[in-house]
Amino acid sequence: MHHLQVKDLSSAYGPLTVLKGVNFTLAKGETAALIGPSGSGKSTVLRVLMGLNKPTGGEVLIDGAALDYSRPASVRAARERMAIVFQQYNLFQNMSVLRNVTIAPVKIKGRPRKEVEAEAERLLSKVGLADKHHAYPDELSGGQQQRVAIARALALRPQILLLDEVTSALDPELVNEVLDTIRGLAADGMTMLIVSHEMAFVREVATKVVMMDEGLVVEQGPPEQIFGAPKTDRAREFVGKILRH
């Protein structure tokens, strides 16, 4: 059974239909990369999965069970299974690093503070920020903030981690520290859906590549196929363009 299955998913911003029937699947422990030109609907897919945008049609299934995003209970269930990291980190500026990471597990899941703090410290060490617990977001570099955002997402113990262009807002010299963190997660077997423009990175860590264009998936398969021998014209054109750069 597929861990995550997205079936004929559609969504719109007002009159503008941006997802026109998206299909792809994700197996447990897989790192899938969602690629495609800007405006093709990649972020919208992640936003629909997280319940930030409403689907207008299609289905999302986790372990074979469909989520009904019109029901608050299902939206809550989606947010328990999945966590998202945004391009702009979106840390809570009024909270210390440690509190950013612990607030959701403590206040929402109701887990004991001591236990959550111990786990948060482990996560922060894992992303290389063991010494920054008491810093505030505005005292950190973009790369450090993004790693805190990853730790914050992991603290919820999601089954699937969604990453939306998490290195795009970073200065070039800070990109690698974040990519290293993601490499580590992939090696640990975390199930991830990554939107990224870092093609070299995608080729290296992705077990599967899903290519989107104009609200549709044009091709999906292992990276060797997508980058080496794309089957569709649209994929060939896009790959040709990005590999030339």
């Binding site: 947010r79 979106n90 500026q93 959701a104």
Partner: peptide
């Protein structure tokens, strides 16, 4: 965006 992050954290 911060509010959205809060929302996705549940």
């Amino acid at each position: 965006t911060e509010v959205e992050a809060a929302e996705t954290l549940g």
